[in-house]
Design a protein around this nucleic acid. Structure first.
Length: 595
RNA sequence: GGUUACGUAGCUCAACUGGAUAGAGCAUCGCACUACGGAUGCGAAGGUUUGGGGUUCGAAUCCCUACGUGACCA
């Protein structure tokens, strides 16, 4: 089924060729939505052709309009306003479009064809010394959703997580636990594992700060004090032991990381996200060494006088970057270079999407440029899905001021809030405890996920806890509610299959709006993939729900005396509910039958 | 200081990548339920798109500049 754009663009090109004698690409013909105040379904911008026509914009529009009506049977009528040619497509076309849509079992999803681009999405990538917070949540939700969108767009997708499980930060938690933990475990304390480990990270910091203060009072400079405090020296010593494979340190490391993984697993489960493969930095951090050799051999890297290995990216408007320090220790970027190469060997991806905050923009530019210099053509497929920070109405989250919003707390808060709302409305009366739990979980998560995903990823966003639990307007629960309403219509119709109907001769304006909107779903998925933006899908789904409510208000669906028209409308409702369900699925939101 | 991103209604966000009178939601005010799911719909009010220049038929969008905010780098 051709879209109106496809239907018309060839003929517009034909018109320009035949009437004005200029050859243009049909793909270059630009359309836009018709402004609601004028009659029409689609609008051609005629400005590009006025020069070729040698006439005024109005006249040019007139001529093209006449041509289109003569050559395209779907064109019912047209009008020109200034340089805009508004074209009305006949009802028959829209009804056929709808019938086609109704029977399309793929719901706009493309089938993965053989040889479709293989996309790897790396997201979440937490540190194991702290529990997850609101910022991580944006990362996780974006990553999961983008992966689902690429799947729907017809790509083969692999979701991976690279856990930062080694380094000085873990040693800090470990050391603090050894010193002040008294053998506390998640079981003994009842704390979630990641919370417990996070607690000791904070504990370390507290004591460390105290030591610095003492040193400073002895007249030692701040920088020096930070470097010479006994605690940090001890932590560094622990890291060396870890690297030397000291069995005692490794054992503790494994125990405490285990707690953290249990904790993360619970949070991931609550958010309903998953991974096809887990990578651990403790396994990958050595990979960089080989790449250094390779780079030196290929003369892409240089050895500086002090022994450090560097890459000079000033030709790409970047800096000189150290890859191996003079003391032989490697740097983050070196690991990332090695990891990328290793990964591509194992899974030859066409695209690798890193979901990482925008504070690392520079890092990923360097990564890509460096890999290309090393001669890896696939580096073109690297994409840094850079997202903005999440702020609170009071400003930035600051761990020092305790304004960090913890992921688990927030999830729980959303659920209880959803439950209270439902109870207030009397919607969960007579429900089993299980159903109540399930519903409040669904609604709470919808509120949270939608609130975060409706915003363009690259923008800094403000998370307002109060507003996010709102159930009205542009929110997840509003969309869920609309879906539940439609399912209720379906139940009341007491039909078992989508009813057949004779195409009505004319359709209501609101019905046409809906059909028009529904028919763009496949295009929306493609756009979302092109822009790496779940927000495109989220806002579209809201549009569908909103337009449905208007349609619902303007047309009596079940009360319609004409049985045929009633069936048509019920079929329309069903298609709407399917689209909503699918759109919400792409942003990781479940949709209830009843609420 | 250098690099980079961003700045749209009181608030949170849109605007099909250069197109018509810049759209939604929240908050405010008003209207609409015997029944269809009111967690709804309709309307009013709210804007010099941070300021100033430029590019052209046409700018929130592109270029320059000033201011503001954030991030990276020293």
């Amino acid at each position: 089924m051709n879209t109106p754009e496809q239907l018309l663009s060839v003929h517009v090109a034909g018109a320009v060729k035949e009437l004005f004698g200029s050859a243009i690409e049909p793909a270059s013909v630009t359309f836009q939505k018709t402004n609601p105040q004028f009659e029409g379904d689609i609008t051609l911008v005629v400005f590009p052709y006025v020069k070729m026509a040698g006439k005024s914009p109005e006249q040019t529009g007139q001529i093209i309009g006449e041509y289109l009506q003569k050559h395209v049977s779907e064109v019912a009528s047209w009008n020109v306003v200034k340089g805009f040619l508004n074209v009305v497509i006949n009802s028959k076309y829209w009804i056929e479009t709808f019938v086609h849509l109704k029977e399309d079992e793929t719901w706009g999803r493309q089938n993965v064809v053989l040889g479709a681009p293989f996309v790897m999405v790396e997201y979440s990538s937490p540190n194991t010394n702290k529990p997850l917070h609101l910022g991580h949540m944006r990362n996780i939700l974006l990553g999961y959703s983008v992966a689902e969108i690429f799947k729907a767009a017809g790509n083969e997708v692999m979701k991976v997580n690279l856990v930062n499980d080694r380094g000085i930060h873990i040693c800090k938690s470990m050391l603090a636990w050894q010193k002040w933990g008294n053998g506390e475990t998640p079981e003994s304390s009842g704390m979630k594992g990641d919370m417990l480990v996070g607690k000791y990270y904070v504990e370390f910091d507290k004591h460390y700060k105290a030591e610095i203060k003492i040193l400073e009072s002895q007249g030692i400079g701040k920088d020096d004090a930070e470097k010479k405090a006994p605690l940090i020296l001890e932590a560094q010593n622990m890291l060396r032991k870890w690297e030397a494979n000291d069995s005692e340190v490794r054992e503790l490391w494994q125990k405490m990381n285990g707690w953290v993984y249990d904790g993360f697993a619970k949070t991931y489960a609550k958010l309903n996200v998953d991974f096809d493969k887990m990578y651990y930095e403790s396994n990958t951090y050595i990979l960089g060494k080989e790449i250094v050799e390779e780079g030196l051999k290929k003369n892409v890297f240089q050895k500086r006088d002090d022994g450090a290995v560097i890459i000079d990216n000033t030709d790409s408007k970047l800096d000189v970057k150290v890859l191996l320090r003079s003391d032989g220790t490697s740097v983050y970027i070196t690991q990332d270079l090695g990891t990328a190469v290793e990964r591509h060997k194992e899974y030859p991806f066409d695209k690798l999407i890193y979901v990482v905050g925008n504070e690392q923009d520079y890092h990923f530019k360097t990564l890509k440029v460096s890999l290309k210099k090393l001669g890896y053509a696939w580096a073109d497929g690297l994409y840094h899905l850079s997202y903005g920070m999440v702020e609170l109405p009071e400003g930035k989250m600051k761990s020092r001021e305790g304004t960090v919003v913890d992921a688990d707390d927030l999830i729980e808060k959303m659920e209880t809030e959803a439950r209270e709302m439902a109870a207030e409305k009397g919607l969960i009366e007579g429900m089993s405890k299980e159903d109540q739990d399930h519903l409040s979980h669904m609604v709470g998560m919808a509120a949270l996920k939608y609130f975060i995903l409706k915003v363009d990823p690259k923008k800094t966003m403000v998370f307002n806890p109060k507003e996010s639990i709102d159930l009205q307007g542009n929110t997840g629960p509003f969309i869920q509610y609309t879906h539940a309403r439609i399912r209720s219509i379906w139940r009341k119709s007491e039909l078992s299959t989508v009813p057949a109907f004779e195409a009505p001769a004319e359709i209501h304006a609101k019905e046409k709006d809906l059909i028009k909107l529904l028919s763009t779903f496949p295009a929306i998925i493609q756009e979302a993939a092109r822009e790496y933006s779940p927000a495109v899908v989220a806002n579209y789904t809201y549009d569908v729900a909103r337009t449905f409510n208007q349609f619902y208000d303007a047309c009596d669906v079940l009360k319609e005396a004409d049985a045929n028209l009633k069936n048509f409308r019920i079929a329309l409702c069903m298609t709407v509910s399917r689209t909503i369900r699918e759109g919400m699925r792409l942003i990781g939101v479940e949709v209830p039958e009843k609420m």
